[in-house]
């Protein structure tokens, strides 16, 4: 991939992982046009957990979709570890996502027919790792998230919290540099949501990896390093909860 646009800060501790400037995105056209992002400026650093909060329809999901490269932006700038998705063709974009981005979804999106280990192994299999090896590595990471006894269970046999832990394991297994989470606790009760966030901080957040979590759930704000508030397609404020990021992240690693 030869579209590295912004090399100087890449891969250094607490460097800029995601850089958005004047980011715009709208849906529909004419009188039906809805402006989801109206010039978003945001930076997410490696090693930090950034939470995107705001009312429904303010553009949070659109913003992480654009950052994760699953949605085309209309205008502005968006660089992820120095790479601009707009400069890539479809294949390059898919490959980049496969190697560098992990996803955690509100409804987990675990394939119902696959066991926990198989679900977790999917990103590795997509990246060309042999099935047996991928599943062995998936079992290891499932142990790390406390599901060593559920590796052969299918999603229907697991609780919501367990499924979300499987989803977190899946997002981490291929060691992506950016993990985007969409409402990871909204389908869970408070206690389970709290545990899931603890797990995220404990096993996932680390140097060289950035985390963006979209949430409505004020009860999990305490897990954020910074909170970006959105409204009507803008970032209205960015609040730092942990000043010494590198220390915090090292502690959590």
């Amino acid at each position: 991939m030869s579209k590295l646009l912004w090399k100087d800060t890449v891969d250094s501790a607490n460097s800029i992982a995601v850089h958005c400037k004047g980011l715009t995105k709208s849906y529909g056209s004419g009188s039906n046009q809805v402006h989801a992002l109206c010039g978003v400026n945001l930076e997410v650093r490696t090693g930090e957990l950034m939470m995107l909060v705001g009312p429904s329809g303010c553009g949070k999901t659109t913003l992480i979709s654009v950052i994760a490269g699953v949605l085309e932006r209309d205008g502005g700038e968006c660089l992820v570890f120095g790479y601009d998705f707009k400069q890539m063709n479809s294949q390059e974009k898919t490959r980049y996502r496969g190697k560098n981005i992990g996803f955690v979804f509100q409804m987990f999106n675990l394939i119902p027919a696959l066991t926990a280990a198989e679900n977790v192994a999917v990103p590795l299999i997509i990246n060309g790792v042999k099935r047996r090896e991928a599943i062995d590595r998936a079992r290891e990471i499932l142990c790390r998230v406390g599901l060593s006894d559920r590796t052969n269970a299918v999603p229907a046999e697991m609780s919501g919290g367990q499924q979300q832990r499987v989803a977190i394991a899946r997002a981490m297994l291929h060691n992506p540099k950016l993990i985007v989470c969409d409402e990871p606790t909204s389908a869970l009760d408070h206690e389970t949501g709290h545990k899931v966030m603890e797990l995220l901080r404990e096993v996932a957040v680390g140097v060289g990896r950035a985390f963006i979590v979209v949430t409505h759930d004020a009860r999990i704000f305490e897990f954020a390093d910074r909170i970006a508030k959105m409204d009507d397609g803008y970032i209205v404020s960015v609040e730092s909860l942990r000043t010494d990021l590198s220390n915090k992240n090292n502690t959590n690693r």
Binding site: V70, T94, R95, R97, K99, N109, I111, V122
Partner: peptide, 16 residues
Amino acid sequence: IRYFGTLKAMGASDFV
């Protein structure tokens, strides 16, 4: 379709 979308988001190409 949601799972195909998930696979696509996670890096599975159209060909796959």
